[in-house]
Nucleic acid binder design. Structure first.
Lengths: 123, 123
DNA sequence: GCTAATGATAAGTCATGGCTTATGATTCGC
DNA sequence: GCGAATCATAAGCCATGACTTATCATTAGC
């Protein structure tokens, strides 16, 4: 079912490239045509189109035809997925940190123990 | 001065690789040694160390020495930056969308309107 | 109709980065 | 101390991907 891992990959893959992030930054100001974006970036029109394809595939942009132009704008879909990913991780990280802090306090009493058995999780 | 763009780059660069994301997933369960991580990943110990270096550089993990081992765990710093980036973008995207929607409604009065605005739906 | 403009795609080039196998540096157990 | 274990680093290999220059498809304007 396009395992959420797929979306993850598409997202982080899309956001990895600085030029693509620059495109997103430009789109923050509102809709822009490919031509317009190209004029403000140090790469060719072809490159911009290729980047937009990747961004759209990741749900980060959408296009709307307008005459012989295509107006692109930021899409919430991808951003929402990214946000969900971060949030999930955020919570887990805090929990893990709390566990660690607690354990550290407990460890304070005895001398030293391996503290190696975090085995409660998955194999 | 490590312009926020630098952090951005380090972050997205770190999160781009699937193996590094897998490392983060493993660390969600708590602290783990490099050896432990290596045993659960299909790559060499060397590769894991290299990944951990990148992750740490992006503020996504931290290490704590424990004997001859090093215990790694998730760091909030990088996640916080990522979260801030998304939130900033999220707000802007919503604003831009609101502008667009408003404009679309205004445009409804005169003759021509895109009629194509897939407005609230996702693509 | 034809020409110009806009944007997507094809094909090819070149740098980047993720992996490997050594090897070095530290620390534990005997 | 010595050998074993853990981890980081060095050097090298190879696939991936970001870019380029054509070229094709569509639309506006004459």
């Amino acid at each position: 079912m396009t395992s959420a891992t797929q979306e993850e990959h598409a997202l982080f893959d899309a956001l990895h490239d600085p030029t693509r992030r620059a495109v997103l930054e430009l789109l923050r100001n509102g809709e822009r045509s490919v031509r317009d974006l190209t004029d403000q970036l140090p790469v060719s029109q072809s490159a911009v189109s290729q980047h937009l394809k990747v961004l759209t595939g990741a749900g980060l942009t959408t296009a709307r035809p307008d005459g012989r132009r295509r107006l692109y704008r930021v899409d919430h879909t991808g951003l929402g997925h990214l946000r969900a990913w971060v949030d999930r991780f955020w919570d887990e990280a805090l929990t893990a940190f709390a566990d660690y802090a607690t354990e550290a306090i407990v460890d304070q009493a005895p001398a030293e123990r391996p503290s190696e058995d975090e085995g409660s999780g998955d194999a």
